[in-house]
Design a protein around this nucleic acid. Structure first.
Length: 283
DNA sequence: AGTGTATCCTGCAGGC
DNA sequence: TGCCTGCAGGATACAC
């Protein structure tokens, strides 16, 4: 669910309300969302002050100043994770599938809720976070990513381009929805070998990735079912999806029926006419 | 270096 | 109505 645009939306909302506030206490309801035990997590976080809220790939990066040292609270939302903020003035109603509650001062509550509990909240030292961050690939919206650089990265891999796009160690932040949408816009078949893309195709793919991510951010993300903003609102990008989840529907460009194939055990939606696996060999 | 499979979970849609 | 199966935005570990 939450890919780069959804996480970016959440980060922007949190960044406008959290920095400077104190986390007075933490209520851990689902310990399996943590890597450490609930008691040590709570004792580290309680009493800390929120310094910053950022994003790296699909991860929320929350900077905390604790009693002893600066820490990073890394939140990966998995498929169904939600970050919900309750203003102090409202009665505190718990969301369904509540995982953790962070009680704030000035008053307010930050909830982490997660139906499937694939999400994770991890406390790291600054050094540990730097190491973790190095494992992730480049940010697709980072200006330093040029068409040539993308082409170089692609040329090292025989993986299908859709699998390559989902690999967070290559680019960080793209998931199944936006991979499908970017490949459609760039007219590239999802099963093409990454290294088979020409320089021109790599450039077109980069343009497509950026335009679809930026468009989705403008719409506050894509809500299929579970994704919510921090205020509980839905993202508005779903009507802009051209192929994802549209198997059997006509391609908006050429009217051919959109197809679904399975790559690495995950659905890949594409237009068989606009996105050819091999160059046309007819006439 | 790849893939396929399984795993972690719950919820929902569709078939019967 | 209910039971069953399949599928879902993600990440990771395993065998091959």
């Amino acid at each position: 669910m939450p890919e780069l645009p959804e996480v970016e939306t959440i980060v922007r909302q949190l960044a406008s309300v959290l920095p400077g506030r104190l986390i007075s206490s933490v209520d851990v309801r689902r310990e399996d969302l943590l890597r450490e035990d609930a008691a040590s997590f709570a004792s580290t976080v309680a009493g800390s002050r929120i310094r910053s809220v950022g994003r790296r790939g699909k991860n929320l990066v929350i900077g905390l100043a604790t009693d002893t040292k600066p820490m990073v609270l890394l939140v990966n939302l998995g498929m169904t994770g939600r970050m919900l903020v309750q203003p102090a003035s409202e009665a505190v109603a718990h969301p369904s599938h509540l995982g953790l509650a962070f009680y704030l001062s000035p008053p307010g509550v930050l909830f982490y809720a997660d139906a499937r509990r694939f999400g994770r909240l991890v406390l790291l030292s600054s050094g540990e976070w730097q190491q973790e961050s190095r494992r992730l690939g480049i940010e697709p919206l980072e200006p330093g990513l040029s068409p040539n650089r993308l082409h170089r990265l692609l040329s090292a891999s025989r993986a299908p381009i859709r699998s390559w796009l989902l690999d967070q160690t290559k680019l960080a932040g793209i998931g199944n929805i936006y991979a499908a949408e970017a490949l459609f816009r760039a007219r590239i078949h999802p099963a093409r070998e990454a290294r088979s893309l020409s320089r021109g195709e790599a450039a077109a793919l980069l343009t497509a990735i950026r335009s679809v991510l930026r468009g989705a951010i403008r719409s506050r993300g894509t809500t299929l079912r579970d994704y919510r903003t921090t205020t509980g609102g839905e993202g508005g990008f779903k009507p802009s999806l051209k192929v994802y989840g549209r198997e059997g529907e006509p391609c908006p460009r050429c009217k051919a029926r959109i197809r679904r194939l399975v790559l690495a055990n995950r659905s890949a939606f594409f237009c068989p006419s606009c996105q050819r696996e091999a160059p046309r060999s007819d006439t």
